Computed example of a mutant assay.
Amino acid sequence: MAPHATDPVTAPTPGRTFQPYIPATQSPAEFTAKAIALGILFGVIFGASTVYLGLRAGLTVSASIPIAVLAISVLKKFGGSTILENNIVQTIGSAGESVAGGVVFTIPALIFLVPHGPAYFNYTQILLLAFAGGILGVLMMVPLRRALIVKEHGVLPYPEGTACAEVLVAGERGGKLAALVFSGLGIGALWKSLSWIFGVFRTEVGHSIARTGVLPNATVAIDISPEYMGVGYVIGPRIAGTMVAGGVLSWLVLLPLISIMGAYITVPFPPITSANALNAATGQPFLISEMGPGQIWSAYIRYIGAGAVLAAGLITLGRSLPTIVSSAREGVMGFGVWALRAALRTERDKDDARDN
């Protein structure tokens, strides 16, 4: 029996047939003009914030939950909405920030690696790359949806998707979730205005040991900003601790180690980058022994970090490859079979004449 409209969203259970919150036999308003327009608007706003956060903090967080909360609040002002319309808004909006995340983690790397990278890429190229990536993502997800979501329901937890569903259901019952989002937005804006625009207080504090110290160029610094605190709260202590460990390794281990080794290197050590290209005092590229902490980080340590990220990505891809291959095979093989069974709303991967 399908759940009543007030039933809570239950945690997925392996081996149990899932009953959606909105029964599959019902087709309330979903892909409407106002949902599409609001989703695009949120996609632009959260996409821009994703680019800023990704370039500043080195990672992003999904915007699905805040977009879902805002969708419920905003659409109530325009005559109300169904839970499926709210879901469409958060889907479109979070897809926009996901595409922005894909851009911010790939294009800078290409600019970083390609000779004359900043001059090579322009806004039109980046726009077309993002558009192509978004289209490919949608086309790949259609055949994989049944293999990764339908068949794996109760096996893969999808914690963020489950939490987003809880938010949407809670919005159906009413509440003040949007007030929390707007209060966080206000606090962040106030903090940023006082520190960044008006300069009432400093948010960056740090100290570096001299090149002649026991740990030459070792640096400890902190940047107290609302975006960092928000990201840290969302990703949790385990991932945040991993990032802190990376910072400790870079600035308190590798930086002094390179500085100590550099004291014995009497010629410029490659790669020669803009960080160490020319010492105005000597007219030659900087020696490591002449560099400050920021120069060593730009010239050497960030390359080590990029290599670590690449290695982690390859390891993750290798571990996930069997699942990806099997899911793709099942998706393609079952595409025609499922199409014949797609009489119910929840079993259709595309709209057709039955929606008219």
Rank of each mutant, 00 (worst) to 15 (best):
M1E: 14
M1S: 14
T10A: 13
Q19I: 06
P20K: 12
A24M: 05
P28I: 04
E30C: 14
G39M: 11
L41H: 05
G43M: 02
I45F: 13
V51N: 09
L55T: 08
S64A: 15
I67D: 00
V69W: 09
I83R: 11
L84G: 02
I88G: 07
S94P: 02
V99K: 00
A100I: 10
V103F: 07
T106Y: 04
P108Y: 09
I111E: 07
L113A: 11
P118E: 07
Y120E: 11
Y120F: 15
F121D: 04
I126H: 08
F131E: 03
L136A: 12
L139G: 05
M141R: 04
K151W: 08
H153I: 00
E160M: 00
A163E: 03
C164E: 02
L168Y: 05
R173G: 13
G175A: 10
L177Y: 08
A178I: 12
A178G: 09
V181G: 04
G188F: 02
K192E: 15
I197H: 15
H207L: 15
A210R: 09
G213P: 08
P216K: 00
D223C: 08
S225F: 00
G232N: 11
G232I: 02
R238V: 15
G241E: 04
G246W: 04
S250Y: 03
S250A: 15
L255W: 08
L255I: 00
P256H: 00
M261S: 11
M261A: 15
V267T: 10
P268T: 07
S274R: 12
N276A: 08
A277F: 10
T282W: 05
P285S: 07
I288A: 05
P293R: 01
W297C: 07
W297Y: 13
Y300F: 07
V309P: 02
L314C: 08
L317Q: 07
L317R: 06
R319W: 11
R319S: 08
P322W: 12
P322G: 06
T323R: 03
T323W: 11
S326I: 04
E330V: 01
V332R: 09
W338K: 03
R341G: 10
T346R: 15
E347H: 12
R354F: 07
